[in-house]
């Protein structure tokens, strides 16, 4: 058996009459950056939503190491060390950047109703540490110091993406899922982000799975690529080899020709 940090086994997701993901096997290996690509509507985000517990697979299993998390809730999966970002940024718009990242810390904190009301020393400490950690993560992703206490709604698109990654990192994940992290970025920003993904992987000892449309980014940083089309896995392996795969070429060309 492999020691894949996270693995989907024959997962299928059906919405009404539509099979969005169809019997897909996918594993993320320890310490790698793997990419999931495919045309629009291929089922990539749906697969992510199953891995993070937002959707329950119609059939198949999700494993985190040896643990079966198919029926676990998203917050439990986060607590087990899986963090994500969203294709359409989902920050809490009226909170500051720092507060957003502190939310990412939620699963590592303990204060409940009584702790919050009476604030014993351990709660104060936990709160202070979360605040410091949020500052560090925001610095790590490159947010300018004067933006830390601005509401995220007022931040630029690129900065919002940074905050979202910082928020994910704050939960101490060992698996990071990034859904189209370069969407809406210009080529220079995309290249920068690609470099940053590798840096995160190396410094934080993470295993990273990303959905990506930018082929330059995919080819540049991923160790392996999985290709979905119409919910089915049509190719998998080394990026260079996948790029030459006739089925992959057809999936992309077929779409644009149609």
């Amino acid at each position: 058996m492999s020691d894949a940090p996270i693995r989907a086994e024959k997962v299928t997701k059906v919405f009404g009459g539509l099979t969005a993901v169809d019997g897909v096997d996918l594993e993320l290996r320890r310490g790698e950056v793997a990419a999931v690509i495919g045309p629009n509507g291929a089922g990539k985000t749906t697969l992510f939503n199953m891995l993070t517990g937002l959707y329950r697979p119609t059939s198949g299993r999700i494993r985190l190491g040896e643990r079966d998390i198919t029926r676990a809730r998203p917050d439990q999966i986060t607590a087990l060390g899986v963090a994500r970002t969203f294709q359409n940024i989902r920050l809490f718009p009226t909170m500051t950047a720092r507060q957003n990242v502190m939310i990412g810390r939620h699963s590592r904190m303990k204060a409940g109703v009584f702790g919050s009301i009476f604030r014993p020393p351990w709660v104060n400490r936990e709160e202070r540490e979360a605040e410091e950690r949020a500052g560090e993560e925001l610095k790590f992703v490159g947010l300018k110091a004067d933006l830390l206490d601005r509401t995220t709604a007022s931040l630029s698109y690129g900065d919002q993406r940074r905050v979202e990654i910082a928020r994910a990192l704050a939960s101490d994940p060992h698996v990071l899922l990034l859904d189209e992290p370069t969407a809406g970025m210009d080529p220079r920003e995309s290249a920068e982000l690609a470099g940053f993904v590798l840096k995160v992987r190396d410094e934080r000892k993470l295993s990273i799975l990303l959905i990506e449309h930018d082929m330059k980014v995919v080819m540049g940083i991923s160790d392996r690529v999985t290709v979905l089309d119409h919910g089915e896995l049509i190719a998998e392996g080394d990026p260079a080899a996948v790029r030459q795969d006739p089925k992959v070429i057809e999936a992309y060309l077929g779409r644009s020709a149609a």
């Binding site: 937002l54 920050l91 009226t94």
Partner: peptide, 17 residues
């Protein structure tokens, strides 16, 4: 506040709804 503003994001960030 997080749950109020975006429940999906909140639960994905580890908040048990």
């Amino acid at each position: 506040v997080a749950l109020r503003e975006d429940e999906v994001a909140a639960i994905s960030m580890g908040i048990p709804t």
